[in-house]
Computed example of a mutant assay.
Amino acid sequence: MKTMTPSDLDRIAEAVASAEKTTAGEIVCVLAPEVSDYRETPLAWAAIAALVLPAGALFAGLRPELPARLFGGWTIGHHAALDAAILSALSTYIAVQAVVFVLAALVVSIPPVRRALTPGALKAARVRRAAMEQFLARGLHLTRGRTGVLIFAALAERRVEVIADEGVYQAAPNTVWDEVVADLVAGLKRDAIADGFIAAVARAGQILSTHVPPRPDDRNELSDGLTILPGR
C-alpha cells in the first residue's frame, strides 16, 4: 500500500470538514489494505488439485505402480500377491494426492496468487461485510437523523463501498452514490489514494447538501480524519 503522508491525512480531514459545512450529514472515510486473509482459498484449490490431478494422470495412462517400477521395484506375477499390489497402488495414489495437496496449498498461499484465485463474489461479500462492520463501529448509525455516509476502500480486493444510513437513503436516489464510487476508484487507479478520497468526499458533500441540508444547530458528531485499518 502506498504510504499515506501526514499531509495526505490532513487534506482528507479538511475535505470532510469542508463538505460537512454544507449538510447535516456526517461523512466517514475508511481505508483497508486487505479485509480478509482468505484462508479457505488455498485449501479449496489444494483439495481440487489433489482430486483432479492424480485422477487425470490415471486417465492419461499413468498407473500407481509406475513410480515403483521406475525406481527398480519388482512386479508381481501371481494371484496370491494381488491384494498386496492393490494396497500398494492405493498407498501410492494417496501419497501422490497428499503431495499435490501440499504443493498446491503452498503455491496458492502466495498473496498475489491467492488474491487472483479467490472468487470475485467472495471478495465482494467480505468487503461488504467489512464495510458494514466499520459503519457500525464508527457509530454512523447513531448520528442525529441517521444521516451518516461511509466511504470505504479495500486496496487488495480493489473494491469500494459507499453506505448511506436510512436518513440519507430515503432522501437521495440510490444511484447518485455510483458517482462517489467512480471518483474514489479513479483516484485509486492512479495510485493517488488521498486525491481519490478527497474527490469522493467532495461529491458526497454535494449530494448531501442537496438532499440533507444543514440545520441551524448542527454539530460535528464524528471524526473527520481517514481511518486506516491494520493489514492482514
Score class of each variant (00 low, 15 high):
I12L: 05
I12V: 11
I12D: 05
A13E: 08
A13K: 13
A13G: 15
A13L: 06
A13N: 09
E14K: 08
E14W: 01
E14C: 04
A15I: 11
A15T: 14
A15R: 15
A15N: 12
V16P: 01
V16E: 00
V16D: 03
V16G: 05
V16Q: 03
A17L: 14
A17W: 12
S18M: 04
S18I: 00
S18Q: 11
S18H: 06
A19W: 08
A19K: 15
E20I: 01
E20N: 01
E20M: 02
E20D: 01
K21C: 07
K21V: 05
K21E: 11
K21Q: 15
K21A: 10
T22N: 15
T23L: 01
T23R: 03
A24K: 14
A24V: 07
A24M: 13
A24W: 06
G25H: 03
G25C: 05
G25T: 13
G25K: 06
E26I: 05
E26T: 05
I27Q: 12
I27L: 15
I27H: 12
V28K: 14
V28T: 15
V28M: 13
V28F: 10
C29K: 08
C29Y: 08
V30Q: 06
V30H: 01
V30C: 02
V30G: 04
V30E: 00
L31K: 07
L31T: 02
A32R: 09
A32T: 12
A32V: 06
A32N: 14
P33T: 06
P33M: 08
P33H: 09
E34R: 14
E34F: 02
E34C: 04
E34G: 14
E34H: 02
V35P: 06
V35L: 13
V35M: 10
V35I: 12
S36G: 07
S36R: 14
S36W: 05
S36T: 12
D37A: 15
D37N: 12
D37W: 05
Y38I: 08
Y38K: 13
Y38D: 11
R39E: 03
R39N: 09
R39I: 03
R39P: 03
E40W: 04
E40R: 00
E40I: 02
T41N: 02
T41R: 08
P42R: 06
P42S: 03
P42Q: 01
L43T: 02
L43Q: 03
L43K: 04
L43P: 00
A44E: 04
W45A: 00
A46I: 00
A46T: 00
A47I: 09
A47Y: 01
I48R: 07
I48Y: 01
A49L: 07
A49P: 08
A49T: 10
A49K: 11
A49I: 01
A50M: 04
A50G: 00
A50D: 00
A50W: 00
L51C: 09
L51D: 12
L51I: 13
L51N: 08
V52I: 13
V52A: 12
V52T: 15
L53V: 13
L53A: 12
P54G: 12
P54Q: 04
A55V: 14
A55T: 14
A55W: 14
G56A: 11
G56N: 11
A57V: 09
A57C: 07
A57H: 07
L58N: 10
L58M: 11
F59E: 05
F59R: 13
A60G: 08
A60I: 01
A60F: 05
A60C: 07
A60K: 07
A60M: 02
G61D: 05
G61Q: 06
G61Y: 06
G61F: 03
